[in-house]
Each structure stands twice: as C-alpha cells, then as structure tokens.
Amino acid sequence: MCNHGIHIMEEVKVIEIKKSIFEDNDRDADNLRADLKKRGVYLLNLMSAPGSGKTTTLIHTINRLKDKIRISVMEADIDSDVDAIKIKEATGVESIQLHTGGMCHLDAEMTRQGLDNVSIDNTDLVILENVGNLVCPAEFDTGAVRNAMILSVPEGHDKPLKYPLMFSVCDVVVINKIDVMPYFDFDLDKCKEYIHMRNPKATVIPVCAKTGEGIDQFAEWLLNEVRNWQNK
C-alpha cells in the first residue's frame, strides 16, 4: 500500500493495450496447424482428468491402428516419464516425454517444441497426451487438428456441467470404464445430453479400455479423421 502512495505522487501515464493474453497463443496455434497440414501430419490433443485411463485407452487404440498409419505419441506431464515408457513398451511406436516445468497445460509453442523431437516426416498421426486437468488445457489451443477428451464413469455424468469449457472445445468425448457403470450412479443418456448442451456436434464414444469394448469405434473415428486431413 505504501508503494502505491508513492506511485500516486509521481506523474504517470497510461498506455492502453486491450489485448487478450490468449491472442499470441491462438496465432501460434493457427500457424502450427497450417504447417502440419502442409506436411500431412494430423495432431490430436487428448485431454482428461488424472486417472481417467488416457494411457491405457491410447495403447489399445494405437495397437489397432499402427499397421494402417504411422503414429507418434507425445506425453506431457509435470514430471516423470512413466507414461512415455509404458506407451513405447506396449505399442512399439515412437513415444517421447514432455515436461511442462510445473505448468498445468501445454500451449502451442510448447507443442511445437515437442514436435521438433518427433520424426515428423515419418509419421501420419501425432497424439499429444495433455496434462491431466479439466480446466487449464481447455483454455490453450495447442495447434491440434482436433481435441478429444476421456471422461471415466467414476468421475460422474455431471462433469460436463462442472467443466463447461472443456466439453465445449472437444470434438470427441470418449466415456471410459463403462464396465463399472452398474456400481456407480452414472447415467449415460444424461451424460450425452449434458455434453451436447455444451457442444451439439461432439461425437460421444463409450468404451472400456480394459476389455477393449468400443475401442474399435474410437480407432475408426481417428483413422477417418487422419485420412480426411491428409486428402483434403
């Protein structure tokens, strides 16, 4: 407060800025998407809360697609490389770990730097596994072609109401762990209704990463997406 007093005493001037702090990132993201389009590389940004089964879902999806298209994975976490190792061991595809240095999300510039470490000219699909978090990653466009999220049954069907932005930016919502639905008060129809309130165009795919149920549908959605991106 004392400092504030001093500041009032001296002559000051105001410089008007009127700039969203997301503006530079949105531009970087558009540039990255245009560059990926030129190279024929599809980038998927996969988001979810921690523990929703992102890595397991990815492993099953990659194993269904790896003979059809070339895939690389970028695992983003605040720390550790357990997920990148797990993906590599279970699928054999290129998998690198990105550390966000304490940040709760990836932005377009961090994504571009990550892509510099991927064999980008020998891949069709790069899957970015974003930091487990339903708030911050939704705010920052990574430059991905599409956003996907995984919502798991134990988290509850009302998540789209609590994290509206996340659901409004996602093109596909995978509902995981449907095998445990009888043990939770999870209403799949209500969940779909809430998702479509946020984003009427969102594709909803119920899966069970453990048994493999529904994974074919997600893999097919992804394959179509990649082929469309490369052919258009």
């Binding site: 002559e11 001037k13 105001v14 800025i17 702090i21």
Partner: peptide, 22 residues
C-alpha cells in the same frame, strides 16, 4: 430455454499499463 450463449465473462485481457511519465 437452454439455447443460450455467453456474451461476456471469459475475458483475460491486459487493459492498460501505467508507467512513469518521464
């Protein structure tokens, strides 16, 4: 109705900065 959309409220903007006048 639920056919509604946000008009204002998501802004994160730097409006202005105040600097010494010298």
């Amino acid at each position: 109705s639920t056919r509604t959309w946000l008009l204002h409220g998501r802004e994160v903007e730097i409006r202005e900065i105040i600097v010494p006048n010298n």
